[in-house]
Amino acid sequence: MAKLRIAVIISSTRDTRFGPVAAEWIAGIAREREELDIEVVDLRDYDLPFFNEKMTNRILPSEDPRAIAWQKKIGDFDGYIVAMAEYNRSLTGAMKNAFDQAYLEWNRKPIGFVGYGSVGGAFAIQNARVIAVELQMVPVRAAVHIGGGEYVKVVHQRQPMTEIEPAILPSANDLLDEITWWGHATKAARSEG
């Protein structure tokens, strides 16, 4: 069976973000699985304008070359895991804009989340799951929530992620199991047309 190409997306673009730490942590665990080919995708590397196309690319092709480049990048994957920052009880503007810049490329693929913040990114993840359904994605049930004491340890006390793994590794394994199952199922269905 061919490997699944999974993007781990860093959803925050601000200078003092925690996203790369969470993304590299889940990417490292995912890379231990032979059936997954993992690539970290940083929104900071894409100069995405605010969505300003005539329509979604489900209806009309996009015109901005930056949006087209993003669509090409995202379209290359079989599924996604988002290192989900939570700003004011929702997802980041950068991630919402990244969702909006593509449509067809997200369709019929699984998406999961590693959330972080005071309540483990729960509100941001819930909001993103609603968006994912509209984009015809498969949001998986399992998620990693780095919140409360674990969040303080890694962000404020600067302890390594390995210090909080006992609290979050079971969720990470469940998330990866679900991404893998749904990734194979949706890839097979897409190949059938």
Score class of each variant (00 low, 15 high):
Asp100Gln: 03
Gly148His: 08
Ala142His: 08
Val82Thr: 06
Ile131Gln: 03
Ala132Pro: 04
Ser90Cys: 15
Thr162Gly: 11
His156Ala: 10
Ser118Val: 06
Gly115Trp: 02
Ala132Tyr: 08
Ala143Gln: 12
Ala128Cys: 14
Val155Trp: 12
Val133Phe: 13
Pro139Ala: 11
Trp106Ile: 06
Glu105Thr: 07
Lys96Val: 13
Arg141Val: 14
Ile111Leu: 07
Leu135Asp: 10
Gly120Cys: 07
Gln159Met: 15
Tyr116Asn: 00
Val119Lys: 00
Gly117Gln: 01
Lys109Val: 12
Glu150Phe: 07
Gln159Leu: 15
Val155His: 09
Glu134Met: 03
Glu163Ser: 14
Arg89Gly: 05
Asn88Tyr: 11
Ile146Ala: 10
Lys153Asp: 13
Gly121Lys: 01
Glu134Val: 05
Arg129His: 05
Trp106Val: 04
Met161Ala: 12
Ala128Ser: 15
Gly147Phe: 14
Val152Leu: 11
Val130Pro: 00
Ala83Glu: 04
Lys153Arg: 11
Gln157Met: 14
Val82His: 01
Glu134Lys: 01
Val140Met: 10
Arg129Met: 11
Glu150Ser: 14
Ile164Phe: 09
Gln157Thr: 02
Ala124Glu: 03
Gly115Phe: 04
Ile131Glu: 05
Glu150Ile: 00
Ala98Tyr: 13
Val155Arg: 10
Glu150Gln: 09
Val130Gly: 04
Thr92Val: 14
Asn88Lys: 11
Glu86Thr: 07
Gln101Ala: 04
Val144Ser: 02
Gly121Thr: 07
Asn97Gln: 09
Arg108Ser: 10
Gly148Thr: 06
Ala128Gln: 05
Ala98Lys: 05
Gln136Gly: 00
Gln126Trp: 03
Gln126Ile: 07
Val140Pro: 01
Met84Ser: 14
Arg129Val: 09
Gln157Cys: 05
Thr162Val: 13
Asn127Asp: 13
Ala142Gln: 08
Gly147Ile: 13
Lys109Ser: 07
Val114Leu: 03
Ile125Val: 15
Asn127Cys: 10
Pro160Gln: 12
Asn97Met: 09
Val138Gly: 00
Gly115Gln: 02
Gly149Trp: 06
Ser90Asn: 15
Asn107Phe: 14
Met137Ala: 04
Tyr151Asn: 06
Ala122Phe: 02
Leu91Glu: 07
Ala128Trp: 04
Arg129Asp: 06
